[in-house]
Amino acid sequence: MASWKAKDSIVILGAGIIGLDVALVLVRKGLGPLITVVAEYLPGDTAPDYTSPWAGCNYSSISGSDANALRWDRLGYRHLLQLATQCSAESFVARTASTEIWDDVVPNDKIKIMSEYLENFSVMTPEQLPQGAAFGVTFNTITLHAPKHLQWLYTTLQAAGVTFVRRSVTDLPSAVSPDTKILFNCIGNAAMSFPGVKDAKCYPTRGQVLLVRAPGVKRNMMRYGNGYITYVIPRPLSNDQVILGGYLQKNVGDHATYDHETKDILKRTTALSTELASSNNGQGPEILGVASGLRPSREGGARVERTELVVGGKAIALVHNYGAGGTGYQAGYGMALDAVRKIEQMLPTQELTASL
């Protein structure tokens, strides 16, 4: 046990939702005082390269149909549902009625698995679908106030003994100390070019969103089409704020926002949501801000893999955990569980802090 007393025995590189979820899983094992999170940006910051604060964000069916994505979705939904039930106001996580619509047929396996665990899950009848739609479902989703949820995680982890260090690092070895035994690599989009990673499968997926005030919008709405996605996400505990989107522009790294995209988003979202169109006494949503974000995407899905990093002749367990694309908030906790399992046999068994 003595060799595990250093606060940076476990280092997490990156303080987006993926890195913070890894820290939360470890803290729930009582290991908070062993953890140091190293990141250039921390919760409360806004920067074009800090993706997590710009998320919608909700649980949705946007993820893939592969086994890992489906399993991470289930684990993430269970985690977020627990937060919505036990500490909604503190964590800025809430149950929200949802309708999701597709212009194309959805794989039966995916729908079957979703129906097994989503609250109040129901398949829409053909009469309930809008023109041009092939399939739709309703269920209880989970919505999050992304910036506030990040800050809640930040303070919760600090209270459990986690140390946060604001520092820009140039490569993986520069993130660790002589006491480090485990390094979690949660660097998101930086995985494309970061020395020691340089994952050619990674790419950014640009999206533009609008932050609006729209009293009366209570239902989460999503529509998936060929080359587009439209969404209306009421932001919980936010004085009637709603996130509207959006775009899925693969391999586009542009941080700018564009007026023609804003107009297109407004047109699509007001057509999708009658609540939105009738908000503010029929005047529609009041625009509070416009932002773009780059989802950290990866061909073949997210990478959760253990390798090894040798620094100064010493081997450090290296766990890569990145590439969630637009599913970081819903898949992140499941990914974190997998990432921690890969080094679980290394961890001390004696709890150092009370579990959360």
Rank of each mutant, 00 (worst) to 15 (best):
T85W: 04
T141K: 04
Y41H: 10
S63P: 01
W102C: 09
G136T: 12
P147Q: 01
S115F: 00
A55I: 00
N58W: 03
Y77K: 10
T138H: 11
K110L: 03
P53S: 07
A133S: 15
W72R: 01
D73S: 09
T85H: 05
V106S: 07
A133L: 10
S122F: 04
S98C: 15
A97P: 12
F92S: 14
E127W: 10
K148R: 15
N68W: 11
I113H: 13
R95M: 13
E127Y: 11
T96I: 00
A67R: 13
S98R: 11
T138E: 15
A89E: 12
E100T: 05
A89G: 08
T125W: 06
Y117A: 08
S52N: 00
S88Q: 13
T46W: 15
T46P: 00
D73T: 11
F139L: 09
G76R: 00
A94I: 08
Y117P: 02
K148W: 03
T125A: 13
I142D: 02
E127C: 11
Q82N: 15
Y50S: 01
Y77F: 13
G64M: 03
E116P: 03
L75V: 10
M114H: 15
E40G: 04
S98A: 13
H79R: 09
C57K: 12
P43W: 04
H79G: 08
G56Q: 02
T143L: 01
G56R: 03
P130I: 07
V123Q: 14
P126C: 06
R74I: 07
K110C: 03
R95Q: 12
L144Y: 05
G136A: 05
F121Y: 14
P107F: 06
A84L: 06
K110S: 03
P147C: 05
A134R: 12
L42R: 04
K148L: 13
S52W: 00
L42K: 01
E40K: 10
G56I: 01
D104I: 02
P126H: 08
H79W: 05
S98G: 10
A39D: 02
D49R: 04
H79Q: 11
I101P: 06
D103R: 14
D103Q: 15
A94E: 10
S52M: 00
E40A: 13
P48D: 02
Y41R: 09
R71S: 09
V106D: 08
P126W: 05
Q131P: 05
E90Q: 04
D103F: 07
V137G: 14
W54N: 01
G76A: 01
F121L: 06
M114D: 15
C57I: 15
S122T: 12
L129S: 08
E116A: 06
I113E: 14
S91V: 02
N140G: 09
T99I: 14
H145M: 05
L83N: 06
G64H: 12
W54M: 07
D73E: 11
F92E: 03
Y117G: 06
V93P: 04
Q128A: 07
E40T: 06
D104V: 01
P107A: 09
A94P: 06
T143D: 01
L129W: 04
L144S: 05
A67K: 14
L83K: 06
P43K: 00
A89H: 08
R71Y: 11
T51N: 01
A55H: 00
V123R: 14
I113K: 12
G136F: 01
C87P: 00
W102I: 07
